[in-house]
Design a protein around this nucleic acid. Sequence first.
DNA 1: ACTTTACTTGACGCCGGTTCAACAAGCGGA
DNA 2: TCCGCTTGTTGAACCGGCGTCAAGTAAAGT
Lengths: 201, 201
Amino acid sequence: MSANQGERARRRLSTGERREQLLSVGARLFSESPYDDVWIERVADLAGVSRGLLYHYFPNKRDFFAAVVERESERMLRMTAAEPGVPVREQLTAGLDTYLGYVQAHAHGFRAFHRADAAGDQAVRRVYRRALAAQEKQILAALAADPEFGPVFARAPHPRLAVRGWLAFTTAVCLEWLRDGELSREQVRDLCARALLGAIA
Amino acid sequence: MSANQGERARRRLSTGERREQLLSVGARLFSESPYDDVWIERVADLAGVSRGLLYHYFPNKRDFFAAVVERESERMLRMTAAEPGVPVREQLTAGLDTYLGYVQAHAHGFRAFHRADAAGDQAVRRVYRRALAAQEKQILAALAADPEFGPVFARAPHPRLAVRGWLAFTTAVCLEWLRDGELSREQVRDLCARALLGAIA
DNA sequence: ACTTTACTTGACGCCGGTTCAACAAGCGGA
DNA sequence: TCCGCTTGTTGAACCGGCGTCAAGTAAAGT
């Protein structure tokens, strides 16, 4: 009766592999449906595994979701690390290209990650906010270090807020971009780049 | 034992009043906690009412949440209706002032409303997206009708996306603004205004 | 007083999250 | 080859909030 991977024989995986597999399935499901439309049973089923095993790896559903979010935030930060020293105007284009590459390559994880914003409890939100803060910090540092934008930026009344807003802008645009792939990556990139330059001008 | 309004004598309200009160309590709770940390029992308790009565007014928890979101979206659209004919630069400042006034006056509802973005099921999201689309349309129309921005705007490759992104920007900034009231309304207003002008430039 | 109807009560089924004791697959040693 | 240990894994029972319902109570209108 179960739709578990077409009844393929159950393999016994190492802890690391199994954990990774469960998180991967979770990312897919959480990207498609809101938090409480995702049944723990279905996660286990798609992984070809029993419900109980999921609770062996994760204490409860909340923490499972938090782990999915955390894994994705780590991947994102790893794939989009900034390269210091390059002028912002160039770094921005290159950085956005990298970022959009990540978004396309890991659309499931990206969507699941941003579901934590409004759907998560305290613990999940903490993970989410930490990742956003890291991105924020990275961008703020790059802007402050730039010869062109550094001085302008120092005078701004609330640079952190501007960057936070811009991250929301970029996220919203990317989610829409994934939804209907009408736009090219370059268009999205340029739109986001202009938005940042505008917000801090 | 129950914390219902300090045991005050139970009043008998008209259907309209009671419905309004329940939605108001719902907005407060949904603004503080994620969807499934809000117990229907607690909503009823805070309203000084039995659980059964809530199910008399709303078919289930999902629809109750949807009603909270819808009520808030109506309020928002009503309070921020655009006045046509005024140049965008002035209309933007005035409109943002109105909007920020709404956000401050109805912080609970505002937060609860935006929880629908990632926490809602299909029905809730439909309500949410409809409200966003209405705002979007309003802004697009104002921009297109403006002598200064109309022509620039007509040439933009994806004006809808820019506006959607800007709405996300504004929302994020407002949520942060509510969280720690460090900034003045004018600062928030000007930041958002600059962001829009930048995004469509 | 009589009617209307907002509202209460309490018991019940359902269903998904959560727990836990037992099972079995791999592996090393004899 | 058998044994025994470790540990990935299972299945079923339990818990608790959602949602239902029928019968009753009391506050407002007339």
